[in-house]
Simulated assay, not measured.
Amino acid sequence: MSDLKELVDRYIQIWNTPDDSARRALVADVFTEDGAFVDPFMEVAGVDAINAGIGAVLGQFAGLALTLLGEVDAHHGIARFRWQIAPEGGESIVEGSDVAVAEEGKLKAVYGFIDKMPAA
């Protein structure tokens, strides 16, 4: 399942690409054309909508990076992994867990869960 782990690494890269056109190219490379991203705050489908949604989140957390927490656990085209958003070398601001479903070498859907979020 190393291919799926590599796909998750490329997915994480999307979240660390602030340039809109570069990020859109990555989204198109990593997700199926009708791929979806769903979490408690966003439900989008399609490359353009996924790119716009991630861009909006990046605007809220400018200067921070999304990184994996631990290893990717993957089998049968499904992966689960934990992540954090934090300043380099600093304490996490947001943490979560995602489940990704792959189809023919691309992500068909990513379902996100928030484990830690700053108070409003």
Rank of each mutant, 00 (worst) to 15 (best):
I114Y: 06
G77H: 07
E91D: 15
W83P: 08
L26P: 03
V8I: 15
F41N: 07
K5H: 12
S97F: 12
R80K: 13
H75G: 14
I12Y: 05
Q84A: 14
A65E: 15
D73S: 14
D115T: 04
D98P: 02
K108D: 04
V44N: 02
E88V: 13
A49G: 01
R80M: 12
G77L: 07
L58S: 02
T32F: 05
H76C: 11
F113M: 12
F41D: 04
G77A: 09
V99H: 08
A65M: 09
L66G: 00
F113P: 00
I93K: 09
Y111Q: 07
G70F: 09
T32G: 14
L58Y: 06
A120T: 05
R10G: 01
E43G: 07
R82G: 12
V47I: 15
G63T: 00
I54P: 00
V110D: 11
R80L: 09
D98R: 07
M42C: 10
D3Q: 12
I12Q: 01
P40V: 03
G63F: 04
P118S: 05
M1K: 11
I78K: 15
A86M: 08
L4R: 09
A49I: 01
D34A: 13
G112R: 02
V8R: 09
V27L: 01
A62H: 06
A79K: 08
I54S: 02
Y11F: 10
G46C: 01
I85N: 08
I78Q: 14
V72E: 04
G77T: 05
E71S: 14
D39T: 05
A25D: 11
L107N: 00
Q84I: 00
G89R: 03
Q84G: 09
P18S: 10
T17H: 06
M1W: 13
R10M: 02
A102K: 09
I50D: 03
A25Q: 11
I54M: 09
F31A: 03
V110W: 05
V38I: 15
Q60E: 08
V94T: 08
E95S: 06
G105I: 07
R24D: 11
E95I: 00
K116R: 11
E103G: 02
K116M: 09
A22W: 03
A74T: 14
D20Y: 11
L7H: 04
G112Q: 07
E103T: 08
E103D: 13
G55E: 00
E88L: 11
R23F: 03
A102I: 03
V72P: 03
V99W: 08
Y11M: 02
D48N: 09
L107D: 00
G63N: 01
L66F: 14
G96L: 06
F37G: 04
S21Q: 15
H76D: 15
P118N: 07
E6N: 15
D39A: 01
G46P: 04
R23P: 00
T17R: 01
G112I: 05
T17F: 06
P87K: 06
A119Q: 15
G77N: 08
V110K: 07
L107K: 02
A36D: 05
I78E: 13
V57W: 12
F31H: 05
G53N: 00
L58T: 00
A52P: 00
A120K: 12
F113Q: 10
H75E: 14
A109Y: 01
S97A: 15
E33I: 12
G90L: 04
V57L: 11
P87E: 06
V44W: 06
